[in-house]
Every structure is written in C-alpha cells, then in structure tokens.
C-alpha cells in the first residue's frame, strides 16, 4: 500500500471486482494512524538519541557555550585513525570467526539432540544454561576459568607439554580466550533456534529418507538443512550484530589487551567517548559503527533470503 493510492470504498470495491488474491484486503489510508504509537516510541528511544549523536559528530565542543561546527572533519579523522582501522579489522575478523564456528557447531548440536523422550528436557536445559548467565558474569567466570595459574581451563591447557598459556601476556592466548568464551556463551542460541526448526519437520520426511536409502548426510542436506534456512538467517544476523558489537565480556576478561590484541571497536569507542570524553570523534565513530552494522546485516539478509527462492 502506498500513500498515493486512491482510497477505495471496501464494500463497493469488493462488489464489482472481487479480488481473489489471498492477501486481498480493503485499503484504507487511515490505517497509517495505527503506526503512530510506534513512531512516537521510536522517536524518543532511538531517533532523538541518535540525533544527539549526530549533533556531537559535526561539532567541536569545548564547553556547553563554546562550540564550533566542523562539518565532516571528525568522520575524516576517525576513518584515517590507524587505531580505529586496526580495531575495525580485528572486530570483523572476530565476527567472521564467531559465525564460522558457532553456526555449524550450533546446527551440529541441534541435529545431535534427541527428538523425543525424557532426554529432550535434559538436553535443552544443559544447552540453554550458558544463555541464562549475565554477560558480565560470563566475563568474570572466564576471567578466572582461563587463568593459567588458578583457573581450571587455563591450568588444564598448561598441562599439555610445551604449552605456556597466559591470556594476560600473550595476544593469541587472549584472542582465543575471548573467542572460546563467545562460542561457549552463544552457540547454544544457534543450537536452540536450529533445534526448534528441526523439531517442526514431520516424521514422515525422515521415514521417506529411510525408505529412499538416504545416508545421514543426505538426510541432513536434503531434509533438515532446507528447513533451517529461515532460522539460520536470523541466527547469522543476531550473531553477527552481537559479536560485532561485543563489549562486556572482553572488557571484563582482557580489558582490550594485552596491548590492543582484543581491543574491539566497542571497547575503543568507549575509551574515546567515556575515557577521553572526545564526544566529537566518538559521535562520528558511533555513526559509522552503526552504519556498518546496518549495511552488513542488510547484505546478509538479502543474500540469504534471495538464495532461498
């Protein structure tokens, strides 16, 4: 429905040319009024704060009464800043790794989970457990768990001969710790989404696959995977956005270090905005950040839904 379309009298329209399309409904532009409450809400929760940020991003503010308009200067300096670029690439790499690990792993867990019997509930509880823990607690748990001296995980890894695991000193160790933590925390989300989709497949499909002599792989590829398309689209979007904006956990575990090994965009941003109180660059940074997430999500969504047609 577009605003320019003439408003039809639903009864008359239905009488002389019955529209048999399943989505045929009388058209009435007053329906736009129904959207109004949402518009009001979004204005105050999103648009106004966003405009504040836009406001910061184009000015250099010295004090509340002393500010100058700088145009796109902050955007230019932020995109040229090597620290920002480094953080951007790091975050992108992190998101890519998160998706590459969590999506297949989540699907594999979902496929392996029982379809019926009392084990279903048991499996669901075990899988869902990490999702119930608050972000900063997850960070705290892993900060201790991964410590080479007193943490169970870090200590165990150090028992392997020739390995010296210490995430506070070694960049690779820190990266791996944050990655494994994210996998542990969020793969269950993918698994649960995929499991719900798999459960909705009627039993005869699996019976037919048995009759047709399909291998386990063929059954997965031909019956289960096609049914996962919808939820995997959602899972990929959620996991991309969330991992691209990851903040709390690495902040608690590594604080962005050692050096800047785990300094992701969000951590850098908060350092600029809160730590240094550089509101101009931080505003420009935020807007770019926001834009990247939007664009990448849009591309994912379009590609994934197109390929299904």
């Amino acid at each position: 429905m577009t605003l320019t379309e003439p408003v039809k009298d639903p009864v008359a329209a239905g009488a002389d040319e019955p529209d048999r399309r399943p989505d045929a409904k009388p058209k009435d532009n007053r329906a736009w009024l129904l959207v109004l409450p949402v518009v009001v809400c979004v204005t105050f929760t999103a648009l106004v704060p966003l405009m504040t940020v836009v406001n910061y991003s184009v000015q250099d503010i010295f004090s509340p009464s002393d500010r100058i308009f700088v145009g796109l200067e902050w955007f230019r300096s932020v995109t040229r800043d090597p620290e920002v670029r480094g953080a951007f690439l790091r975050t992108l790499l992190f998101s890519a790794q998160v998706l590459l690990i969590e999506i297949p792993l989540g699907v594999a867990i979902a496929v392996a989970m029982p379809r019926r019997g009392w084990t279903v509930s048991a499996a669901l509880v075990v899988v869902a457990l990490p999702l119930l823990i608050p972000w900063n607690v997850v960070g705290t748990i892993w900060q201790i768990f991964a410590r080479g001296d007193i943490g169970l995980g870090g200590w165990a890894v150090n028992q392997v001969p020739g390995v010296d695991f210490n995430y506070t000193l070694d960049s690779a160790d820190a990266w791996i710790t944050v990655l494994v933590m994210d996998v542990w925390h969020w793969t269950p989300l993918v698994a649960l989404l995929a499991y719900a989709a798999l459960r909705s497949i009627p039993e005869p499909y699996f019976q037919a696959a048995q009759i047709d002599g399909a291998s386990a792989w063929a059954t997965f590829r031909r019956i289960q995977l096609p049914r996962l398309r919808g939820v995997l689209t959602i899972a990929i979007l959620l996991r991309f956005m969330d991992s691209f904006m990851i903040y709390t956990e690495p902040f608690v575990v590594t604080g962005g270090g050692p050096g800047n090994a785990t300094s992701f965009l969000s951590i850098l941003l908060s350092k600029i905005a809160v730590g240094q109180f550089d509101l101009g660059p931080a505003g420009a940074f935020s807007l770019l950040y926001f834009l990247i997430v939007q664009i990448v999500s849009y591309v994912f969504f379009t590609v994934l839904t197109r390929s299904g047609r």
């Binding site: 005869p204 499909y205 019976q207 037919a208 048995q210 009759i211 002599g213 031909r222 019956i223 096609p226």
Partner: peptide, 19 residues
C-alpha cells in the same frame, strides 16, 4: 532397519525433497 529391507513405501501425504 528399513534401508536393509528394500521396500518402497509411499505415504498418505506428499513427502518431497522440496529444494
């Protein structure tokens, strides 16, 4: 198991590999 029996079976409702 079914695979070892060589039986063809058609179900009450269409079951297809939709893709």
């Amino acid at each position: 198991p079914t695979a070892g029996r060589n039986i063809a079976q058609v179900f009450q409702f269409p079951v297809l590999y939709e893709e």
